[in-house]
Simulated scan of single mutants.
Amino acid sequence: MDKTIAIHPDILGGTPCFAGTRVPVESLFDWLAGGETVDFFLEQFPSVTPEQVAAVLADAKTHATSTLRVN
Rank of each mutant, 00 (worst) to 15 (best):
M1Y: 04
M1I: 06
M1V: 08
M1F: 02
D2L: 09
K3F: 01
K3P: 00
T4V: 15
T4F: 02
T4A: 06
T4W: 00
A6Q: 13
A6T: 08
A6D: 13
A6M: 09
I7N: 12
I7G: 14
I7Y: 07
H8V: 07
H8P: 00
P9L: 10
P9I: 11
D10P: 00
D10F: 01
D10H: 01
D10R: 09
D10V: 03
D10S: 14
I11T: 10
I11C: 09
L12K: 06
G13C: 01
G13Y: 01
T15M: 14
T15C: 05
T15L: 09
C17R: 08
C17H: 07
C17P: 08
F18N: 13
F18L: 08
F18G: 09
A19F: 06
A19D: 15
A19S: 14
A19M: 04
G20Y: 08
G20H: 05
G20L: 09
T21Y: 03
R22D: 14
V23G: 11
V23E: 15
V23I: 11
V25G: 10
V25R: 11
E26S: 15
E26H: 05
S27Y: 02
S27H: 10
L28K: 03
L28M: 04
L28E: 12
L28I: 08
F29I: 06
F29R: 07
D30G: 12
D30Q: 14
D30H: 11
W31G: 03
L32R: 13
L32P: 02
L32N: 02
L32G: 09
A33Y: 01
A33V: 00
G34D: 15
E36T: 01
E36F: 04
E36W: 06
T37H: 02
T37N: 05
T37C: 04
V38F: 00
V38K: 05
D39I: 01
D39E: 13
D39W: 00
D39S: 08
D39A: 13
F41M: 14
F41Q: 07
F41G: 12
L42P: 03
E43A: 09
E43K: 10
E43H: 02
Q44W: 00
Q44P: 00
P46M: 10
P46G: 05
S47D: 13
S47G: 11
S47C: 08
S47E: 14
V48Y: 02
V48P: 06
V48A: 10
V48D: 10
T49V: 07
T49R: 13
T49C: 02
P50E: 12
E51C: 11
E51Y: 02
E51Q: 15
V53R: 08
V53P: 05
V53S: 09
V53I: 10
A54S: 15
A54I: 04
A54C: 03
A55M: 03
A55H: 04
A55E: 14
V56L: 06
V56H: 06
A60C: 06
A60N: 10
A60L: 01
K61R: 14
K61P: 00
K61W: 06
K61C: 13
T62H: 04
H63A: 15
H63P: 00
A64N: 12
A64E: 13
T65W: 01
S66D: 12
S66C: 05
T67S: 10
L68E: 15
R69N: 07
R69W: 02
R69T: 09
R69E: 09
R69Q: 15
R69A: 11
V70I: 07
N71F: 01
N71V: 04
N71G: 07
